[in-house]
Simulated scan of single mutants.
Amino acid sequence: MANFSPMDNRKLLADFITRYCNLSDPDLEKVLQQFSFGEIAADTVILRRGQTCDTLSIILKGAFRLFAVDEAGNETTTWLVFENTLITEPASFLTRQPSRYYLQALEHSEITTIHYDQLHALYQKIPGFESFGRKLMEEILVGTMCRATSLLLDTPQERYNRLLQQPRFLQRVPLKHLASFIGITPSSLSRLRRRMQT
């Protein structure tokens, strides 16, 4: 995977922020200075159950999943995200309570991150920046509701068809995680894929 230069990363972050709020150049620079940039190796778990999620990150390159593990050790993937998308554990981040989930990089990834305290300090210093956080959380809420509705009302076939409309899911996410994400077993997903190929 090719790495971006520091200037590329700053540009990607600036573009992401200005999708959600309008800031003057000096205020945007203050915001950019509070983000740190880093790389995460594939399969790295960056948040574990029982930890409080203290950071909000934006994926510059790569893919992540949010998943839960039950008492029997079974994993359920609840969120799959790729480039130019927020990655956090929203319930823990917002409530400051220990998470019930894990966050894991599916690929070698490049991210830019801000700490909870830094983010809220910016909200106080730069009122126009508050719309950044509000609009991000609105997106997460809508996405969560749409996913919950799909799991309740759509058939596995319909959920899989929706994945087919976004090829990166099939190209970059292991089938066992895709199966969990759409609420079926890996063997059921394999049968579904075979039926569609015949």
Rank of each mutant, 00 (worst) to 15 (best):
L119V: 01
L164R: 12
W79K: 11
I114S: 01
L86A: 02
E71Q: 12
A121W: 07
P167A: 06
D154V: 03
L175W: 02
E138P: 04
L66R: 14
S57C: 08
R172G: 14
P186V: 02
R96I: 05
L141T: 15
T52H: 06
T55G: 03
H177D: 09
L152C: 12
S57V: 01
T149G: 12
S180K: 02
Q104T: 07
K176N: 15
R168Q: 14
I59V: 15
C53V: 02
T113K: 05
W79H: 13
G183E: 00
T77H: 02
L60H: 01
N84H: 14
Q165T: 05
E158Y: 10
R159I: 14
L56Y: 03
R172C: 09
T78M: 08
Q165N: 07
S131K: 12
A148S: 13
S99L: 03
L141A: 10
V81Y: 04
G133K: 04
N84Y: 11
I182L: 09
F132Y: 13
L60C: 08
T55Q: 10
L163W: 00
I126K: 05
W79Q: 11
R65A: 07
A91Y: 12
Q124H: 13
Y123R: 03
L152Q: 15
A63V: 06
R65D: 05
L103Q: 14
S187A: 09
C53H: 02
H120G: 06
D70G: 05
T88E: 00
L136M: 15
E130I: 04
H108Q: 12
I126L: 08
E107K: 14
I114D: 00
S150G: 13
E139K: 05
R162K: 11
T113Q: 01
R96F: 05
A63M: 00
I111M: 13
Y116P: 00
V69M: 08
P127K: 05
Q97D: 04
L119W: 01
S109Y: 06
L119E: 01
Q165V: 05
A121T: 11
S150P: 12
M145W: 10
V81E: 07
H115T: 12
A179R: 00
L153A: 15
G143M: 11
G62K: 05
L80S: 00
F82D: 05
E138A: 09
I140S: 08
S180Q: 07
E110H: 13
V81T: 13
T77A: 05
T76K: 03
Q171W: 01
L136N: 04
K176L: 09
N74E: 13
E110S: 15
R172W: 11
R168L: 10
L178F: 03
P98T: 00
D70R: 05
S109V: 06
L94I: 07
E138C: 10
E139Y: 04
A91N: 15
F64Q: 00
Q124P: 10
E83I: 09
P98G: 01
T144G: 11
F93I: 09
T52A: 04
A179D: 08
N161M: 08
F93V: 04
L141R: 11
R168F: 06
R65F: 02
I184G: 02
V173Y: 03
F93Q: 06
P156W: 04
T149K: 14
